[in-house]
Design a protein around this nucleic acid. Sequence first.
DNA 1: TTGATTATTGTTACCGATAACTCAAAGTTA
DNA 2: TAACTTTGAGTTATCGGTAACAATAATCAA
Lengths: 336, 336
Amino acid sequence: MITIYDIAAKAGVSAMTVSRVINNTGRISEKTRKRVRKVMEELHYIPNMLARSLVSQKTHLLSLLITDITNPFYTTLARGAEDAAKKAGYRLLFANSDEDYAKEKDYIDMILTTRVDGVLLAPTGDHSLENLNQLRKHHIPFVVLDREIPGIDVDVVLGDSKAGARNLVEHLIRLGHRRIALVNGLQDVSTARLRYTGYEEAHRLSGLQLDESLIVHLGYRDFHDDSALDQLFQLEQPPTAIFAANNMLAVGVIQSLRARGFHVPGDISVVCFDDFGPAGAINPFLTVASQPAYQFGQLGMQLLIERLESENNYEFRKIMLPSQLIVRSSTLPLSP
Amino acid sequence: MITIYDIAAKAGVSAMTVSRVINNTGRISEKTRKRVRKVMEELHYIPNMLARSLVSQKTHLLSLLITDITNPFYTTLARGAEDAAKKAGYRLLFANSDEDYAKEKDYIDMILTTRVDGVLLAPTGDHSLENLNQLRKHHIPFVVLDREIPGIDVDVVLGDSKAGARNLVEHLIRLGHRRIALVNGLQDVSTARLRYTGYEEAHRLSGLQLDESLIVHLGYRDFHDDSALDQLFQLEQPPTAIFAANNMLAVGVIQSLRARGFHVPGDISVVCFDDFGPAGAINPFLTVASQPAYQFGQLGMQLLIERLESENNYEFRKIMLPSQLIVRSSTLPLSP
DNA sequence: TTGATTATTGTTACCGATAACTCAAAGTTA
DNA sequence: TAACTTTGAGTTATCGGTAACAATAATCAA
C-alpha cells in the first residue's frame, strides 16, 4: 500500500508537503508540486480515506436507509438521493431494512461505527423513534423520509397520504362502490394510519357508513400472505372494491383475487398507493395515487446536506409532496 | 465523541485493557471486565471503525456495484448479495453506475480510497476492463456479475445468454414468425453479443435466413429512444415479432409500438430477457427468459467471501446459471 | 546593509484504535 | 524457599493522514 510517506521519500520532500499538494492547501512552489504529482502518478497513489477521516472527523459518506429495495418507489427515491449526493460531492451508503426493526437497528449501529456524516432514512415505523434517538444522541444529522415519527422533531419529506387515500376512495365511491375494503399496512406506520384516515374521511364526506370488518392489516411487504383476504370474502356482504395501502400489497391482493377466481376489475375493482416504476409501464393497469418518488430522495438529500453544511441550528423543516390520482383500468363502475 | 481512553480513564484502567474487553482478546479478570463493560454502557460507547480499520487494514466493508438500480433484475440481485454479506458478517456498500463508464470509474475510485475489502460488480461493458485492472493492481479482490469481460481472468457469475436467447427466438419461430427483429444492447456488453449469437443460432438451426436490417442497437437503459424503431418499420417487410435483449428495452419497445398504434401481441409479438420482479407480477404479460436474479447476487457474494477469507490463490471460478423460458401473453402465432 | 516580511518546507503531535512487548504479582514446583 | 509459570494488566509504537507551529530561504523596504 503506497502512502504519502513513500511519495515523500521518493520526491525528496516531507509527508506534509505531499499532503499539501494533494489537498491544494498552503503554499507550494510549482516545481515541487510538479515533482510530487509526478511521483504520485508513478506510484499509483490512492489516498486512504480511513486515515484522512480519522483526523478530519468527516467521512463525506452519507447513508440512505430504505425499507424495501425491491419496491420501485424506493429504488426511484434512491436514484434521486444518489444524484443529489453525487452533485454535492458525497458518497452514498445504501442500506435496506426490509421493513424489519431489528435489521434497521443493525444498520443504525453500523452507521454509527462507520462514522457517516449524515443519514437519510425511511423508518420502519413509530418504534424507529429509538433508533432516531440513538442517532441524535451521537449527533449524527438525519432526515426522515416518507413516514412521520411521533415524539421527535426532525427534518422530514412526506407524501400527503391522507389526501391521496381520500382521492382513491372517492374515485371508487363515484364509480358506485359502497363496500370498499382497506388492505392496510401496520398501524405502527404513519402512512398506514393516514391512509386509513383518508379512507374514513372519504366515507364520511360521502355520507357512507364505514364498516370496520372491511379492514385488514398486513405489513407493507407481507403480500405473500394469501389468507389475509379470507376475512373479507367470508363476510355476508363482501367488498366490491379494494384499496390497497401500497403497491406491494396491491400486487398480493390482485394475485389472491385471481387465485380465487375473481376478475379485476370485472368482479372487483382495485386501487392502491404508489406506482410501479418502469416495470409497471408495460401494462399500466392499476389505478393509483402516484407519488413523486425521485423528488422524495432528491429533496430529502438536499435537506440533509443543507443541515450538514450549515453551522446554525435552524428549525426543522417538513416538506409535504402531493400525490396524483391516475385512473387506469383496474377500476370499473359497480355493475348493478 | 467517546473513545476507549475516556472509558479507560473512568474505569481506572489502560486503553489497552478496554480494547481487550471490546475484542475479547487477551486475559482480563472478570472483575475489571465487568467494570469496563459498565462504563462503556454508561458512556454509550461506539467503536470507531475508522481507527480500527486503519490499524487492522480490514474494513469489513464490501461493495456492490450494479448498473441499474431501477431494474428489478438488479434489485433482486442486490437482495441476494445483501443477505449473503450479512450472513457472513460483512457490511455492504451499494453503488449504481447507470450503465455509465464514467460513473463506474468514479465509484471504483471511491471504492479504492474507502479501502473496502472486496467488490462485487456488474461491469458496464468490455471497457470496464480498465476499472477491473485498477482493482487488481491495488489487490482488491472482486467478483464479476452477469457480464463477461474479455482479457481478464476472474471469478464470475453469468447467465446463459446464448441459450436463453435461442429459446426465446425458437419460441417465436415455432409460432410461425419469420421476420424477427432484435433490439439489442450495445456490442460492448458480452450479454448483448451472446444474445445476438443465440438469435443467430436459432435462425441457423431453423434454416432461416438472418436479415441484419432487423437488428437495432441501443444501450440497455436507453428505452426512451423512441426513434429506434423507425428503422424497423420503414422496411419493406417489417418484423412480425421483436426480441428485446433485456426487460428495460422491452418496456420501451412496447411503449413505442403502442404509440404507433400497434397491438401486442395482436399485431406484433414481443419477447425479452429478464423478468420484472414483484411489480411485474400484477399482469404477467411478457414472454421472457427469466434469470435467477437472487442467486446471481447470493452466489457472487459467496464466491467473493470465499476468495477473501481463503489464504491460497485457488483458480478462478465461473458459474453459469440457466434461464427459464416463461411463455405468457405477449406472443401469438403469426396470423396468416 | 539590515531588519522585516513573505514564501516554502519541515517537525511534532494527534486522530482512535491495536499489536507486540514488558512487567509486577500471584501461584506452582522441586 | 528459590526458581519458574501463569495471570492480568500497562507501555510504546504504529496505521496514514493533517493541524499547528517552527524554521529556513528568498524578497523587500528603508
